[in-house]
Design a protein around this nucleic acid. Structure first.
Lengths: 215, 215
DNA sequence: ATGCTTGGATAGTGACACTCCCCAACAGGG
DNA sequence: CCCTGTTGGGGAGTGTCACTATCCAAGCAT
């Protein structure tokens, strides 16, 4: 199909598609003549993924490119591709190492992971971005006077550990080929985030109503 | 204290503090002379909250102002203030009502809430922003070919329902006065979001390692 | 008196995600 | 064959956002 049809079928303006092509978020179409290119279903699919990551997931264009690059990297195995892709996801400000609150938070996060038996203790020496995220958030809470002890965090971690099992079940259900599985993993990781946050706010509203009455 | 001291104690540049004052994120200081103002501990506290919301929580300056306005609104009761404040929190793109996927998603969300017995069914006719967030995300998943049925969403909702109980316990633990409780509720709602997301990514990485082996 | 600091206001910066516009190369109708 | 309208590419422009740099007059400190 032509760019115009790709635009119509995806609901994305041609100008934006051209921008994505320039930025490398979409592979170039098959050049038919010097001034025309042909796009296929895979372009449509990729475009929809890009749109979902950027608009719903709030991922930046640059991060999206990194994620997609990892997704397409045939030199990596299934698992490494998933790891690399999720690794490229945005992770907010990295923690300020000079702050004493950051140091406390890092120790607390380490002890929590150790308690849970999650693998980023002595087994690996790399620091995943998600750990930085966690440390930053704990440090911010600390500085604001809301210290979250390990026993406060543990129920969250346990609950999310169980949900992760469910997440991976979904990935295996949707993905036939390894390529599809990796794509599904990225999509589900990112797009379930707003689902989680929205459900949490609704749950809090419900619980608040239950405790403090009507209205 | 002077603006310079407020800056030093908070780690925020004077230029940024002045910007926040202009934007109404901080109440003006007590004017001592025509060119000098005095700030108190409450300014420092409020400034730290603003910083945490903006930097860690990713809340925009405009949303932060709305949240703080609700927080300070003495005409509302405890519960309404909390609701209004959380209401003002960012909630991504609102759903495109013309899209058929959005309609499907909305019905699914409604049925989920009904199944859970959460109060936004027949009891109220207002639509909280969080519900819009949820609908948008479900619709995006649908369009991408990852339909999430009610039974897929239910475990997430149940888990978050339990965590909400824990959240509110924390709020009651930290907040003595109603004012403090409302502030704690906002801070914990926003700042536990990155904690949740980070723990989820770590949990997924752990589960992925467990299923697909080492590396 | 003088030199530095302070608070307020205005204008500028850089990042980001598009979006506009122009151009040359086509494709199809007459 | 020619003319009109469309296509894809590419550079430049737009609007938003969260600051940030500069200027100025009014203090305070010496």
């Amino acid at each position: 199909m032509r760019l115009a049809e790709l635009s119509e079928r995806s609901g994305v303006s041609t100008a934006t598609i051209k921008y994505y092509l320039r930025e490398g978020l979409l592979p170039p179409g098959r050049r038919v003549t010097a001034t025309q290119a042909e796009y296929g279903e895979e372009h449509l699919r990729r475009l929809r993924l890009v749109r979902a990551l950027i608009q719903v997931g709030g991922v930046s264009v640059a991060s999206t490119r990194d994620v997609l690059t990892a997704l397409d990297d045939g030199s990596l195995d299934h698992n490494a591709r998933l790891g690399t892709a999720v690794w490229a996801l945005p992770h907010g400000r990295s923690a300020d190492a000079e702050d004493p609150a950051t140091e406390t938070a890092r120790q607390r996060a380490d002890r929590l992971l150790e308690l849970l038996g999650w693998g980023y203790g002595p087994t690996t020496d790399v620091t995943p971005p998600a750990l930085g995220m966690l440390v930053t958030a704990i440090a911010a809470l600390e500085r604001l006077g809301y210290p979250c002890a390990i026993e406060d965090l543990e129920p969250y971690a346990r609950a999310l550990g169980q949900l992760a099992v469910h997440d991976l079940d979904l990935v295996e259900r949707y993905g036939g080929t390894p390529d599809e599985q990796v794509e599904a993993a990225v999509a589900l990781t990112v797009l379930y985030e707003p689902v989680l946050l929205a459900l949490r706010r609704l749950a809090e509203a419900e619980e608040s109503r239950r405790r403090f009455g009507r209205a």
